[in-house]
């Protein structure tokens, strides 16, 4: 990387430099957002961290940090299972979003005529205008035993005289996956679209001229060029899934405890332990931070050769 970027030529000095000392300028510009973040993000996170060091604390007790017991608890088999389940939901949702999102983004970016592009894109993002809670409830209506899907199945069975088995997936893991994938697909498509839009089409033509099959062109030219977009989209979906509470809670029933639901239970549910809940929150914050760091490092990087 060294030597790749020449030293920037000195900018002509701005007027403000005469009024404000140099060190004050960034402070002045950053202070409002800084205070906001400090009060509403940094301090609360530190408080959560302090609480996470108090074993078995319940409301009304004195906060007296005394050790890492809460963190040790996370290594309990049952919580490991919950963490793994959350991770597997996040990984599978990312996979399905990529699988379903890439063709759509490809189609919008490269095949749809310029005139319709924005309209098609708008149509695809339209569901984001309604509340995520509402969208999850809609899936309940669709998937429930007496819901839309099963009504259609019953109708088909009666018309064809076949006995089609009813679809019974609400309150099970597939329903959660469907809900999460549906919720996050627009984000994946938007990011992939932005990446595919920038695709250098001359390279595609060159590949074709030099005898590459469409599949080879796709795998060797298109995919490597959009890799930052794929990484950004995947990480964004992954991060959001990891912290998703609504879909597992509404669609997962008694069978799909995730980290987010477990945290909720520690604070407001049937078994309350604010200290353990805080420790779980810290772990979740840590995992998401790592994912965000990866996103910054790989998401917008120049395509690797």
């Amino acid at each position: 990387m060294a030597g790749q970027s020449p030293p920037l030529s000195k900018q002509p000095s701005l007027d403000t430099e005469k009024v404000l000392p140099k060190w004050l300028e960034p402070l002045f510009l950053l202070a409002p957002a800084g205070i906001w973040l400090g009060l509403l993000l940094v301090i609360p996170t530190l408080l959560i961290f302090e609480l996470s060091l108090v074993p078995n604390i319940r409301p009304g007790q004195v906060v007296n940090p005394s050790g890492l017991d809460n963190y040790a608890l996370i290594f309990d088999d049952i919580y490991q299972k919950v963490v793994l389940r959350s991770l597997s939901f996040a990984v599978s949702t990312t996979f399905f979003c990529l699988l379903l999102g890439f063709p759509v983004a490809y189609w919008i970016a490269l095949i749809v005529s310029k005139r319709w592009q924005n309209l098609v894109l708008l149509g695809f993002v339209l569901p984001l205008w309604t509340s995520s809670l509402l969208r999850s409830y809609a899936w309940i209506t669709i998937l429930r035993p007496t819901g839309v899907v099963n009504s259609v199945i019953t109708l088909l069975s009666s018309m064809t005289h076949l006995t089609l088995p009813p679809l019974d997936i609400l309150n099970r893991e597939p329903a959660v996956l469907i809900g999460m994938t549906y919720s996050l697909l627009p984000y994946m498509v938007l990011i992939l679209y932005a990446s595919l839009e920038k695709l250098d089409r001359r390279l595609l033509e060159a590949a074709a001229d030099l005898g590459a099959t469409p599949v080879q062109t796709f795998l060797k030219v298109t995919v490597p060029q959009t890799l930052p977009g794929i990484a950004a989209g995947s990480l964004l979906v992954f991060i959001t899934c990891l912290g998703d509470f609504v879909n597992p809670e509404l669609l997962g029933g008694a069978s799909s405890m995730t980290v987010a639901r477990l945290i909720y239970n520690q604070f407001l549910g049937a078994t309350r332990n604010w200290g353990f809940g805080s420790a779980l929150s810290m772990i979740l914050i840590l995992a998401v931070s790592i994912a965000i760091a990866l996103l910054i490092k790989y998401g917008d990087a120049v395509p690797k050769k």
Binding site: L51, I57, P59, G60, Q61, V62, V63, N64, P65
Partner: peptide, 10 residues
Amino acid sequence: MSGCGWTLAE
């Protein structure tokens, strides 16, 4: 227990 720390959700 008294004296140290703060009371959670007082």
